[in-house]
Amino acid sequence: MVTEDAQLYTIEGIAAAFMIVVTAYLVVSTTTVLTQQDVHIIDLQLQQLGNDALAMMDSPDSYGENSILTDAVIKVVSSNDSLLFRQTFLGYVNNATNVAVPSYDRINYSAVIYYLNTSNQINQTLVGGGTYYRENSVKVSRWVFLPKGSLHVTDMNNSVNRSVLLEVQLWRE
């Protein structure tokens, strides 16, 4: 026989069921958001790492000296020798603390130098680096100060101090 006892228990049961459904929905939707967030945080960290590495390279050891970055860029634009840039940059970005195996990170780069040539057109010189296929990459850039008199490519005026734009594309292999 149907009675009207325990109305509150029924209401309680409905409320509990509703809360379980809402909770389950929130949990499921939360996990889907997380994947997007991961991509952005990885981009952010990679970009920050690249900017920091270039900033470290652009800090001279002592006052009045050229920074390593300036020297490396001069080597690239004068004799197409990117070894100094490659070694220093990869050494900085791949230097990981407390990573057991492997002891280095696996970040690679591809860099281009943009400059104004003697007829004030934008020209570019490839620094080189790894071959980029389809990895998730970020781009960082830095202005590099080249003092006058340093060796340049032929269409760059080296009788004045000048700045060139170094663009580095970074990705994790």
């Binding site: 104004l116 004030n120 850039s141 700045s163």
Partner: peptide, 15 residues
């Protein structure tokens, strides 16, 4: 003459 134009042209073109 040189620096301002370098910065303006390259910034506009690349960034």
């Amino acid at each position: 003459t040189t620096l301002l134009q370098t910065f303006q042209d390259l910034s506009l073109e690349r960034k």
